[in-house]
Design a protein around this nucleic acid. Structure first.
Length: 749
DNA sequence: AGCACGCCGACT
DNA sequence: GTCGGCGTGCTC
């Protein structure tokens, strides 16, 4: 038994005896006496055996099982061990991922409703005649109506439902219950977060295009063979990937197996889930962060018992308690929301891969813009590549126009909107269509560029943009620590047009209203989506045509289908290009391609305008050409040349502390000692595989009053890498400050 | 994590 | 001579 207490000292297996009548099985939750005071503690059974596996004295006994079934399946137990090993977390942390949090400590109750039915053995005709007057007319019409209704339906009915039909029947029901003609009963009900759309199953699934058919046919054999194959489904925006998913799921259900569909949290809007509900009805369970504790628990139970066979959810749904897993589908595979941001810092794609391996299930990764890592795997054969190259109904891909803001600026246009974007907005608004303006400003870092020539200050050693630090007016490289003062003039063209980027959505909105005073706008950004469901409400308001222009950050780039949108403008592409991160080009390409895919989804050819000071940047160039392969080849070469992931791995150890000097001292000491251990684990003669290491305060050196000191290692990807990463984890685990360890952290701020 | 044990200082 | 501070160590 692993006790449900998250502490490193007790995160190990304890042996208990149990009475065989308890029918204890691996994966069950149990109550055990623990510690000197034998306080009742919840725990998870890892395994059972007739004989003690270790020599032991004074075994205690399991008090009782908490649920009459194993809450964690066999494959999930195995998965927990893998998670512990891979992400260096406690085994309980992994086990806790598998069950709804509210289940621990018995905090969820099943919901019941009071139902009434005609008591068995009741002589109905006798009961009825008792309600009549001498002359045969009805004396108690309300009671009679209740009896009629219940006899007609023949099954127990919820009291509230009866009252909905017969609003006057309240006292009649009480009387009938008192007379013993009716019987009251509590019936369990599911708290379902979803409501079946009207007209369910009304429409036949649309016929597949030839390409979709070919994709399905390619994947089906391994689904049947249970060969744990992984497919990368690369399909351009609007090519109908979802339809391919649904066919695979249908096949899976036909052989009595279950399916898990992962979508980014942001996409878990009714629009997405409705497509699945339409096709698969009540066999769909939905899991996402907005569910109440009760809803989550009930959906979990529906999945566990097999009542629901299709699970649609965000990243944690990869742990759904399906018994017979047939397929896992991960849509928008490249999204970073599949990476968990608290312990254990798992990646849903990696977990899905392992879970499929353990169960023989098929994994399908779908995207219009696959991650560099996934596409490389498809190229090198560990994944099978499946491509959809055409949009359904042969819709054309949108035309992408790149506007060179250097020219705009030099020709005297100082506004946020270029002449081209202005005129397209005018046409679009004038013809009653809708437009999306993307104002992307990610993270806190900004960079410096020259408005005259487009020159960007990049680090000569690292090939990433240097970050502007307001304090002291300096620029720094977050990878090697190089720094310099912000110059007054541009070193490339000599002009004094240097500017740091930082335009926000409000500014875009203001300037748009200055140009088009009557236009209705909606703004979707961090400020306007703070409240619950605000995001969803804004997007459906736009979908309903309540505004003509949607202005937003990258939140608006994906997932939703707005048929009336014909124009997409990327206001300041450069904000995505020069983020000090080796993945910035990849993310920018993905963003531009995804947002461009929003334009012209219903017949009409869409228009995309990308405004930039770097018109020849590959992320922009290849997005304009809709050329994923071209971008992939370019970016892979870049990564190889700079020895960035996947050819290397960054490991960051982050120390937090309130006292600056001691934090720096301890962090630096750790860095020395840890580096020693890394070199040791790489082995004699392989020291060069440690490509780079540093110890310094993080770019945001203090956050909410807490200083942040980081130790960074860059390791060449070889057969020694895992060992070296493990050494860093171990070393950090031994440190009293419990620093946070991250491999290829999503940013270095 | 949570509880016992244990070894020092302030009190009856 | 005893009560209670929380440092150390263990939990099947």
């Amino acid at each position: 038994v692993i006790v449900d207490i998250a502490h490193a000292n007790i995160d190990k297996c304890f042996t208990y005896t149990f009475d065989p009548t308890l029918a204890v099985q691996p994966g069950m939750r149990v109550l055990v006496p623990f510690g000197a005071g034998n306080r009742p503690t919840e725990g998870f059974v890892l395994s059972t055996s007739e004989e003690p596996t270790q020599p032991c004295v004074n075994l205690k006994q399991i008090v009782r099982v908490l649920d009459p079934y194993p809450a964690i399946g066999e494959d999930q137990l195995e998965l927990c061990h893998y998670i512990k090993k891979t992400y260096h977390c406690l085994l309980v942390d992994a086990l806790r991922l598998m069950i709804p949090a509210q289940m621990r400590g018995g905090r969820v109750k099943e919901k019941t409703v009071q139902t009434i039915q005609i008591a068995p053995g009741t002589d109905l005709s006798k009961a009825r005649s008792a309600l009549l007057k001498k002359d045969g007319s009805v004396k108690y019409p309300a009671q009679m109506a209740v009896l009629d209704l219940l006899e007609q339906t023949g099954i127990p009915m919820a009291v509230s439902d009866v009252l909905a039909c017969l609003p006057e029947a309240k006292s009649a029901i009480l009387t009938l219950l008192k007379k013993g003609i009716l019987q009251k009963q509590a019936q369990k009900v599911n708290r379902t977060p979803t409501h079946l759309p009207y007209g369910k199953n009304a429409s036949e699934p649309p016929a597949l295009t030839d390409e979709q058919r070919a994709a399905v046919d390619l994947i089906l054999p391994s689904l049947h063979a249970r060969s744990a194959q992984t497919y990368l489904l690369h399909g351009v925006t609007g090519s109908g990937k979802t339809e391919v998913y649904m066919h695979l799921i249908a096949d899976c259900l036909a052989s009595d197996r279950q399916a898990i569909v992962l979508v980014p949290e942001i996409a878990l809007t009714p629009q997405t889930t409705n497509r699945f509900l339409h096709r698969f009805g009540e066999r769909v369970a939905v899991l996402h962060s907005r569910l109440s504790a009760g809803e989550r628990y009930d959906e979990w139970q529906r999945i566990r018992t097999g009542e629901a066979q299709v699970v649609v959810g965000a990243r944690s749904a990869v742990f759904a308690p399906v018994k017979e897993l047939g397929i896992i589908i991960i849509d928008e595979e490249h999204e970073h929301s599949y990476q968990s941001d608290h312990t254990p810092r798992y990646h849903a794609v990696q977990i899905a891969r392992k879970r499929c391996e353990l169960t023989g299930a098929t994994l399908v990764l779908g995207s219009a813009t696959p991650s560099i890592v996934s596409y490389l795997r498809a190229r090198t054969g560990s994944y099978q590549l499946v491509e959809l190259t055409k949009r359904v109904l042969d819709l054309p891909l949108p035309g992408v126009q790149i506007v060179d803001l250097r020219e705009e600026f030099l020709s005297g246009n100082n506004s946020i909107f270029s002449a081209a974007l202005k005129s397209k907005l005018k046409t679009c608004i004038g013809s009653g269509k809708q437009a999306i303006l993307l104002m992307n400003r990610r993270g806190y870092a900004t960079f410096i560029s020259c408005r005259g020539c487009g020159h960007v200050f990049t680090c000569p050693d690292c090939d990433v943009a240097m970050t502007y630090h307001r304090y002291g007016e300096r620029i720094k490289c977050h990878y090697c620590g190089r720094e310099a003062a912000v110059p007054h003039t541009c070193p490339a063209c000599g002009k004094a047009y240097l500017k740091h980027f930082g335009v926000g959505t409000q500014q875009v909105e203001e300037q748009l209203l200055a140009l088009f005073p009557d236009v209705k706008t909606l703004r979707v950004d961090f400020d306007t989506t703070r409240t619950k469901d605000a995001h969803q409400k804004l997007l459906s308001a736009f979908a309903n045509g309540e505004a003509q222009v949607l202005i937003g950050t990258q939140m608006i780039a994906k997932g939703l289908d707005f048929p009336n949108v014909t124009l997409v403008g990327v206001v300041a592409a450069d904000a995505s290009l020069y983020i000090p991160d080796y993945r910035s080009a990849e993310r920018a390409f993905q963003l531009f391609t995804q947002v461009a895919g929003r334009a012209g989804r219903a017949g009409e050819k869409g228009d995309v305008v990308i405004q930039t000071y770097s018109p020849s940047h590959p992320s922009i160039y290849f997005a304009k050409q809709h050329d994923f392969q071209g971008f992939f080849a370019y970016e892979l070469a870049q990564r190889k040349a700079a020895l960035f992931p996947p050819f290397s791995a960054f490991v960051r150890v982050l120390f937090l502390g309130e006292e600056q000097e001691s934090l720096e001292r301890e962090g630096s000491e750790f860095a020395l000692c840890c580096k020693e251990r890394v070199l040791q684990s790489l082995g004699q003669g392989n020291e060069r595989e440690l490509l780079y290491d540093c110890a310094c305060f993080a770019p945001i050196a203090k956050r909410e009053g807490i200083y942040r000191f980081m130790v960074l290692f860059k390791l060449l990807r070889t057969k020694h890498t895992t060992g070296a990463v493990d050494a860093i984890y171990t070393c950090a685990g031994e440190h009293a400050r419990h620093p946070l360890v991250e491999v290829n952290p999503s940013n270095l701020f």
